[in-house]
Design a protein around this nucleic acid. Structure first.
Lengths: 340, 340
DNA sequence: GTAGACATGAGGTACGTCCCTCATTTATGG
DNA sequence: CCATAAATGAGGGACGTACCTCATGTCTAC
């Protein structure tokens, strides 16, 4: 009456349990015709493997590694925090999460780290990195060694990664552009774009989306060349004030990356109030929304990203398929009025 | 080596497996002192029950009921669809989801339906309903019978429901208000608010939040009294055009509930283009965003709602606690530029 | 001192799957 | 037709927990 089991398959297909087991687990020694018959029965009686029982029986445990840049931004800190939290929760399902920080400026050390993980037979890697040939090669080596790789936050579409967990950054940039344009209104002027580095695909894509919308829909606005400030608050705090002084007609600022503390310092002394769109809801960004310094903060829910990455890696490891809709990370649009 | 098991507890506490089992499953016949000792050991060795093995052993299966209004809106259709999808996915974890549609105008039939579910020993109920005393009482009876109840989409905070799955509707209204105000700009004028019924708490809360922001932050705007159109496209299509004719200074329309097809028909013949903020990303709303008739669509991800409700009901049934952050349903802000 | 209640121990079976061994049947090639 | 390989059957022990029975130990009250 309950759900069908392997015994039901065996009975219906007229084979022994051993054969059913061989088919189910793709073990050798079964005729093609028999495989087909067993699979047909599985189909008709609607058998689904009891994952709980299977995991119990095979005492399987998985170890996944999250490889992140070792920089010290609020966003990375929250990623690390969520990895720890998620790790505590999935441990009881025999899943271990390792957190690895790598010097970001050094692609070679990144690559070595991935090789180290391959060597220790890791069950999956979640990777956040800039797009470089070395890292692409490392991903290829991992895949060749049978290790699944997913990219996190910033994609590497040209690599052989199995999956990407993160928002659509072009859409994020377009959203920033539209809100910027509509909040500014009809006034003519300039908008300033601050990014970490254009080598990071997420930053480049945001810039691209932003420009698409500003250029096509808001002819009253001109966007200035990207200021690359390497997500460093000090650099931002130093570079922005002279720029604002040079261009009194800057009506908006789009802060693509991290270092918002520096931006806040730069804006504190400013007489005019540009429309500011920033990314990632850190405590500083939150305060800035509340006091009106920032107008919009676009965010990706870090907890969701980590949980999604864990689910996806696990699905890969267990050979299951994933619920695409559940794994799509959405862009959160925060204004003062809908702060969580 | 591996995670501790019941055997480890027994050894450490110097009791037999039977006693550990009695303590773990709250069976009678154990001295208070022994219970304490066993629990202390559990604490120190960090034992966590292997839920998979436990469920396997006790051959437990759960049945949850989703009770929804029987009306025929795009939003309800998508809820029903997602319940089916989620049902297919959780079946393999021995969870069954039943979908029950109830005539919404009749609180008595709602109440009867809940009693029927209680009688058939359902393991949990997810409920979407207007706030009435009859339904509150029905929820109380369910809880008294040991059936967990969660509210869906529209909360019943005065009832004894165990949990609410849905967005913060006041925040949604505030978001609508702010975007409306900023998109309109400095022009003076009126905004029109269309809702289903103010008896639905979600609609009432959205209206409340919307007014808070419009009144406090946009003195140039006046919001007209709520038009209750019972989510009926025909009613909306009939009522709106004369209103727009009477008030040529309507600069914005906030559509709180369903029936957006009617609103689109009403706006089609209109000469001016008010800023329109609507809820729920139906195909019609999507098209309206793309062609510029709608400016903002606020949405709650229906798939997330259903999956969250299922997870929460299951956690209750299994006596586990829930990951609060994972179960918070977020408000999605869609504009043309970030459509999925 | 003893009946009775209570507390605990000992041991087993079951859940559905995995994975192993060993025996036996069936097909294949020479 | 026989040697050999391939395919299949039969069976059992694990995994960690639930839940059952039966026996035995220990205390309390009279």
């Amino acid at each position: 009456m309950g759900r069908p089991t392997v015994h039901d398959i065996a009975r219906e297909a007229g084979v022994s349990l051993a054969t059913v087991d061989r088919v189910l687990n793709a073990r050798p020694g079964v005729k093609q015709a028999t495989i087909a018959r067993v699979n047909a029965v599985i189909e008709t009686i609607g058998y689904v493997r009891d994952v709980a029982a299977a995991n119990l029986a095979r005492q399987r445990s998985f170890t996944f590694a999250f490889v992140l840049p070792d920089r010290d931004t609020a966003f990375l800190a929250s990623l690390r925090r969520e990895i720890k939290v998620a790790g505590d929760h999935v441990r009881m399902d025999r899943v271990n999460l390792n957190l690895v920080s790598v010097a970001t400026e050094n692609a070679a050390s990144y690559s070595m780290e991935i090789d180290r993980l391959i060597a220790q037979q890791i069950d999956g890697i979640a990777l956040m990195a800039t797009e470089t040939p070395q890292i692409r090669d490392a991903i290829r080596r991992a895949r060749a060694a049978g290790v699944r790789v997913i990219t996190l936050v910033s994609d590497q579409p040209l690599s052989e990664r199995d999956h990407f967990v993160g928002i659509n950054n072009t859409a994020a940039g377009r959203t920033a552009g539209l809100l910027m344009g509509r909040f500014i209104g009809a006034r003519p002027g300039k908008v300033l774009v601050i990014a970490g580095t254009m080598l990071a695909r997420d930053h480049a894509e945001r810039r691209l989306g932003f420009d698409q919308v500003i250029h096509s829909q808001f002819p009253n606005l001109t966007s200035l060349p990207t200021m690359e400030c390497h997500d460093d608050p000090e650099v931002i705090a130093a570079k922005i004030p002279p720029l604002l002084a040079d261009h009194p007609d800057i009506l908006g600022i789009y802060s693509i990356g991290a270092g918002n503390r520096g931006l806040l310092r730069a804006l504190a002394g400013n007489s005019t109030k540009p429309v500011v769109v920033a990314h990632e809801l850190s405590p500083h960004a939150r305060d800035a929304l509340l006091d009106g310094t920032f107008d919009v903060v676009l965010t990706q829910d870090v907890g969701h990203i980590i949980r999604s990455a864990t689910r996806v890696l696990r699905a890969f490891a267990e050979g299951r398929d994933i619920i695409a809709a559940q794994e799509r990370i959405r862009l959160d649009v925060f204004i003062r009025e809908n702060l969580p």
